[in-house]
Design a protein around this nucleic acid. Structure first.
Length: 301
DNA sequence: CTCGATCCCTGGACGC
DNA sequence: TGCGTCCAGGGATCGA
């Protein structure tokens, strides 16, 4: 599932692959996950991809104004704009030679001036694609929290201590930190020895700073290893990441804790499966975890 | 403010 | 083998 490290990996790959290319035309499949499909068709052709940025779990393809040639932009394309892409759960964005057959669930194809198509595929369509003017983009981006890779000690502490939600919910809240998802939330909580259901306000200063540090270390390491490929994450070159091999909590229900040998348990916290060590990460009072499954051996590793 | 529930969607794992 | 059921989860939304 694409979180910050996976999205960063895709963004870096795209930077190598499509910077400076021009979009010649666009073909759409299903459009129910696209903000305004007509706007895409109207505003993308003719534009140059000038930059690829990441904002939390979003990718931002910065597009030049349409210039020169015969075309006088009557539709506002004299101004810069951006293509916003969120990969959701199963989204993939990759440049593919235009003559290659399109994979199932390919819903956006941007023909580039190098003979390739930038293709967006997304089986579940939990992702999002939108063309945004500068004004819409500014509107879109406000309300997001700090970048977890850059947040400092005091800023992080105030965002955690200032609210009463559970720490897991806070880590997942894109308005608190932008880019953290279920995997890296659980991994950092395990590393910091903090229980996911602990209230943010109840973390000590020491625990909070430890959490910030390990979160940053984990995210940086995961980026180096090109993200976690659980089911179907692939980068812009179609390659899986490696960080799933380093998971210590996520997906490890019933397996031994790497620190203390206790069995990793699972609970629903903040509406999400949360994996933790019941010994290293002591529960708040009255907390109930799910019973260990007896037979079904679904997850390996 | 924070919570849980519900919906979106499909593929894969599972049980029978 | 085949079919039904459940589950995965980011995010929006709604009601408690």
């Amino acid at each position: 599932m694409p979180e910050l490290p996976e999205v960063e990996t895709v963004a870096r790959g795209l930077r190598q692959a499509i910077l400076g290319r021009r979009i010649l035309s666009i073909t759409l499949g299903k459009t129910d996950f696209i903000d305004d499909p007509v706007a895409l068709e109207q505003h993308l052709p003719g534009r140059l991809i000038e930059a690829v940025e990441r904002y939390g779990k979003f990718m931002l393809l910065r597009l030049s104004p349409v210039t020169g040639a015969a075309r006088v932009p009557a539709n506002g394309d004299a101004a810069p704009g951006s293509l916003l892409v969120h990969l959701g759960m199963t989204g993939q964005l990759a440049p593919i030679p235009a003559e290659y057959p399109r994979e199932k669930h390919t819903h956006v194809c941007l023909l580039l001036n190098d003979g390739r198509e930038l293709r967006y595929t997304d089986a579940r369509r939990f992702g999002r694609v939108a063309y945004l003017t500068e004004a819409l983009l500014a509107e879109e981006l406000k309300g997001f929290g700090v970048d977890p890779l850059e947040v400092g000690k005091d800023e992080f502490a105030s965002r955690i201590h200032g609210r009463r939600a559970r720490i897991k919910a806070l880590l997942l809240d894109q308005g608190v930190l932008r880019g953290v998802g279920n995997i890296y939330a659980d991994e950092s909580l395990w590393r910091a020895k903090v229980h996911p259901a602990q209230l943010g306000a109840k973390l000590s200063r020491r625990q909070t700073e430890k959490l910030r540090r390990v979160l940053q270390e984990i995210l940086r390491r995961a980026i180096v290893l090109r993200g976690s490929s659980i089911s179907d994450f692939l980068d812009a070159a179609g390659e899986p990441g490696e960080y799933q091999r380093h998971h210590r909590a996520y997906g490890r229900e019933g397996k031994s804790c790497y620190r203390c040998e206790s069995l990793i348990r699972r609970a629903i916290v903040a509406g999400r499966s949360s994996y933790f060590c019941p010994k290293c990460q002591p529960s708040p009072r009255g907390f109930a975890m799910l019973p260990l499954p007896r037979r079904g051996k679904k997850r390996k590793r």
